[in-house]
Design a protein around this nucleic acid. Sequence first.
DNA 1: ATTATCTGTGAAAGCACTTCCATGAAAGTA
DNA 2: TACTTTCATGGAAGTGCTTTCACAGATAAT
Lengths: 334, 334
Amino acid sequence: MSLVRSSTIYDVAEHAQVSIATVSRVLNSPEHVNVRTRAKVQAAIKELNFVPRAEASARARKSACRIGVLAPFFTYPSFVQRLRGVAEALSDSQYELLIYNIDTSARRDLYLSHLPITRRLDGLVVMALPFATRYIDQLQAYGLATVTIEVPDSSLSSVIIDDEIGGQMAAGYFIELGHRRCGFIGDSEVPDYAIHTSDRRLAGYRRALADAGIDLPAQYLGLAPHGLDAARQLALRMFAQPHPPTAIFSPSDTQAIGVLRAARELGLQVPQDVAIIGFDDIEVADFIGLTTIRQPLNESGRVAVDLLLARLRDRERPPQIVQLPLTLVRRETA
Amino acid sequence: MSLVRSSTIYDVAEHAQVSIATVSRVLNSPEHVNVRTRAKVQAAIKELNFVPRAEASARARKSACRIGVLAPFFTYPSFVQRLRGVAEALSDSQYELLIYNIDTSARRDLYLSHLPITRRLDGLVVMALPFATRYIDQLQAYGLATVTIEVPDSSLSSVIIDDEIGGQMAAGYFIELGHRRCGFIGDSEVPDYAIHTSDRRLAGYRRALADAGIDLPAQYLGLAPHGLDAARQLALRMFAQPHPPTAIFSPSDTQAIGVLRAARELGLQVPQDVAIIGFDDIEVADFIGLTTIRQPLNESGRVAVDLLLARLRDRERPPQIVQLPLTLVRRETA
DNA sequence: ATTATCTGTGAAAGCACTTCCATGAAAGTA
DNA sequence: TACTTTCATGGAAGTGCTTTCACAGATAAT
């Protein structure tokens, strides 16, 4: 089968006996074209099966019609969920969706330094990646509209949650259930390209416990590299103590599931022997009945896109910080 | 902060006292440029912080430097896993990754009919979406290199698995474990934009059972719309029978998890009272210890990209069908 | 010394649109 | 009738790069 040369605006113009300017107008502002001319042009478009190259349009009107998303998608499952919100919010717009996956800080910096200059994007969503001020300056200097998720900055729009309050909610619920021996299993170190939410969630948790006169002793505090199995190992050791905690909060569902597995392996009844609360409410949490602090992941993506599109429509719009609510989702583990 | 006009190849050329052609050559084929000229140009590039607009390069060399992926990402979790393979395979190439999420057949057809014509892509990966022959013809007519996953077609390269064998493997394992009352809980109807793997997996399952002299009676066969909860409901009813099955195979992990929940709700011991096998081995399966027929999701994405890039390097390359192996992953549910 | 070959470079075409500006025709107003 | 305004349309610039072609100068072969 031979290759077909797709028709251009020139072909349509010739076929309809008008100039390319008129064809362009029929496409972009049909009300400015005489009804009869318009009909003629539309017939030609249909006959030649003409679809304007988005590339060329974008170039001529100096917009790329593209939104990029920068995130460590495959390191933490929650980012895929946010991406879903982004995709939904974008699905009825003209914008295409580009994925820039981050797996090292070098790659993050490469993208951040090149994307604004190469002008391939109209807007950028950066998820949970802390980055140097000079990149923020550069983004602004080159006029690349940017919204961050989880990383507030006064000169950029952001979608955030209050991690400390999340920790407080977990503590509050444990206290309400009558627990006095409350533990925490979280992150010791975070990849250098990601942010440290675990610490903030721990801080809120610890403070709310303290306010209720409950201490969080060192033997109830387990920190390990992020991941299900590391959390499981920590939990196994923590449960082996003479007076193990009766409740454990983890700053991610992944880790909470690790704790849950440890409990099951030791024959502990959940939530009778030990209550477990996670954080995020990723899809799996519902599958396995995990009680968790839900953050609206889907919605964070959607809101980020809304902020971005609003900014794109009005470049003068001031940056805006949107804080999304957390909710305790009670399922079977606490 | 005022907007910065990023420097172009013209600025560099002027700064280095050469023509833009020479700057372009320094960028693309430095060995064809005199050493001293090259040094001069490279100094200018550095000084002006010049980064070529990928857009313009792509246009001039008539390639978009972009790979698109078409899939119902958020309908089935397995597609995100495949996407991961795609992203990994692409991460060291020059290509950018575009996501086209499908949620209706109308959208699928819109993308399929426009993408080849608008020339925004060099290559396309289509995941598990059946589509009309005329779209295949069009893809080829307009020269958009395409690889499909799960949808073999003699004129396109594809990555596939053998669904029937997957069903046979599940049956074989149940037989080996001594089960005689084997059930199946799968899909009654599939979104009109997706393919019907459930039926093929059932066919293989049924045949392997038959070969062992085991019947699959109607009361052991449950079909419902795809989803965890629909599967759970079916399972609840199936377990309520006088002689319920002692083993259930589901053609997706999501459904198997629904079955598992039903079993737990009824106080059935898994795998003692009932054994459960899923299909796919999505991430959750490991979390909850689900025994499943694993298909290499990650790898399917990677192989698809490899096929695509090979095709892009050599347009004459004949289509190729790669079949990926299935493996039984024994965990705790069977 | 003369011709052939090679090397390095610049000029210019091509890409496929949008949009500003100019122009002519038609309609409206004094 | 003469002038102004509105409408419809075409011409042409602008976009930032790659690549082909041609040419000048240097080197090698005869």
